[in-house]
């Protein structure tokens, strides 16, 4: 017994070292999966406040670019106004039918909320964006996030009362369903953690005809994003002969470095399909 105590006393520093190293590695491997990230409430509120102060200054340097992007977004929205379209006079050949549902009513599916980016990283293999809008302002997990130019930015993974953390597309666990706009083939958009200007679109069938500059859009298969949002444009194709599918390198539609504003998308009709899915799993 005495020997054990002596042994522990002699190597006490080493044990402390092992303890701290173990603690770090446990934190790293246990909690860095994005779905159970313990981005603790306290840490995010404190670092969030600091980041807001920093961003107040940094924002001025980006004002010009932010303005330009917002003007462009506005222009796109003006062009979608109903007043811009003339409806053909269909009264002449109107057919009276007996619709049981009032088809003039529209039901809102996606709700957009603006949010200010207070912290942003692009140089890590797992990049997060922190925005100044949290649970108190209606943020929920798994909400989709887009930039003012309509390009996909990422997904909300964690929110505290006033701040939320977004897993950007530049994250090793990011996984968004994408579609080639021209051919309609669908695949998955991921990131290999290397170059911040290159995303990968995986699992595209080899029958697809792809050329440089083709648009890749969201497929609408996930409940997070509406269909048709820009993910990026095709750079080139990695032709892996051993596989039956293409991996396409794409250039992201969003410049992740310059993000100052983002829009969080809430799917108001997500509850029903989610429940269906859950029921099927339980069967």
């Amino acid at each position: 017994m005495r020997n054990i105590i002596v042994f522990i006393r002699v190597y006490f520093t080493f044990f402390i070292f092992i303890f701290f190293l173990g603690l770090s590695l446990a934190l790293l491997f246990k909690y860095n999966k994005y779905h159970n990230a313990v981005y603790s409430e306290a840490a995010s509120e404190i670092t969030g406040m600091l980041s807001t102060q920093y961003n107040n200054v940094a924002y001025y340097f980006e004002l010009k670019r932010v303005n330009d992007s917002l003007v462009k977004a506005n222009e796109a929205l003006y062009n979608k106004l109903r007043a811009d379209y003339e409806i053909a006079d269909t009264a002449e050949n109107a057919i009276i039918d007996a619709l049981s549902v009032d088809s003039l009513n529209v039901f809102r599916k996606f709700l957009y909320r603006e949010a200010k980016v207070v912290r942003n990283s692009v140089s890590q293999p797992n990049n997060y964006i922190i925005v100044h809008r949290g649970r108190n302002q209606g943020v929920k997990d798994e909400m989709g996030v887009i930039a003012p130019n309509g390009g996909v930015v990422g997904t909300v993974v964690q929110s505290s009362s006033n701040f939320s953390m977004i897993m950007s597309l530049l994250h090793s666990q990011s996984n968004v369903s994408g579609r080639l706009k021209k051919g309609g083939e669908t695949g998955t958009v991921i990131w290999d953690g290397k170059h911040r200007n290159v995303l990968l679109l995986k699992d595209i069938t080899k029958s697809a005809r792809i050329s440089q500059g083709d648009s890749v859009i969201t497929s609408g298969f996930s409940y997070k994003f509406p269909e048709g949002l820009m993910l990026g444009t095709v750079i080139d194709i990695i032709n892996d002969k051993s596989s039956s599918t293409y991996t396409v390198r794409i250039k992201p539609a969003v410049d992740f470095e310059d993000l100052q504003f983002v829009y969080l998308i809430e799917n108001l009709q997500a509850a029903e399909p989610n429940e269906l899915q859950k029921n099927i799993k339980n069967k």
Binding site: L23, S24, L25, L27, N32, A37, Q124, I130
Partner: peptide
């Protein structure tokens, strides 16, 4: 540093 980057343990180790 990890508290800022949200990657607990990555810089501590």
């Amino acid at each position: 540093l990890d508290a800022f980057t949200g990657t607990f343990g990555l810089h501590s180790a």
